[in-house]
Nucleic acid binder design. Structure first.
Lengths: 155, 155
DNA sequence: ATACATGCAAACAATTTGCATATTA
DNA sequence: TAATATGCAAATTGTTTGCATGTAT
């Protein structure tokens, strides 16, 4: 799913076009990763200084109902990204920027016989860490400190 | 970790013995699965009608700090169970009763080379569903309805 | 007696809702 | 204009905190 498809879907379903709605979808299109309600509020602050969380939440939950977005919960916060209906997969999730990278391996494939008495209804497999870009940024933030350490290499 | 060990640990660390603390640990010992703060409050209602959530939360978070309990987040609620430090593993989690069953398979073992640029710091793999006991209970709840359906098998 | 534990009330953060108003089709 | 979207304010839920009091050591 992407912004274009989402806009068409909304129109077909009779939902109205609004700038905020479009811009929220734009954010997801540009970002290509998970965003929280707060992320959206911050990102739209310039264009819509007074945008209310109600609107954001209402739209997120509408988008979720329409399968435009999919949700996960990260550290107590709901995060959304475009729904990928093409095939079942999981994600690497960057804890700093929220960007995700698809991994096609699903651990369930190897687990057909874990426990025949347990009726499986769902599963969650997520890998957390830091993406290449964020690793660089983290390194740069550390630099000044690291230098002073590197100067005195041993005791 | 179990109640006995936890009590010893608490004493050694200088924390005081209280009935509530012990009974909370008893709950985890008896249950052997995830419990939420609310679960605990309900379970202790008879013995401590006025038990406050503060106390429950404070103890849960103390227990977590001391590695007595481990936490997961299920549907926006924090859930706790005894911490298993013996070996890395994952869980089948019953969505009805919270009981867990260990599975020793870890999908990370097969994923050494997913993305060399992504620095992995953690992962989550949980399988959700219904345990044997809860499946039975769910069946029984459905029974009356099922009977009336079974009487007229076809059109 | 002293330190730690608890209850109370209040604060918090994330999210949701009712209702009046504003906006799109 | 008719239906949908938004803002406002207030409610809800899960959780945390300050402070006075209570209790285990």
């Amino acid at each position: 799913m992407n912004k274009q498809e989402a806009m068409v879907l909304l129109k077909n379903k009779g939902y109205k076009h609004t700038d905020k709605r479009e811009d929220i979808l734009n954010l997801f299109d540009r970002k290509g990763g998970y965003l929280s309600a707060k992320d959206i509020q911050i990102a739209l602050k310039d264009d819509y200084p007074g945008i209310s969380f109600d609107t954001i939440y209402r739209n997120l939950s509408l988008f979720q109902d329409l399968m435009i977005l999919e949700e996960t919960e990260l550290d107590g916060e709901k995060m959304y990204q475009f729904h990928c209906k093409e095939h079942h997969h999981h994600h690497l999730i960057c804890l700093r920027c929220g960007k995700t990278r698809t991994i096609d391996v699903c651990p369930m494939q190897d687990l057909s016989q874990v426990d025949p008495d347990f009726q499986v209804t769902g599963h969650k497999f997520e890998i957390y860490g830091y993406c290449k870009e964020c690793r660089k940024k983290i390194e740069n933030e550390k630099k000044p400190l690291q230098d002073s350490i590197t100067v005195s290499p041993s005791t």
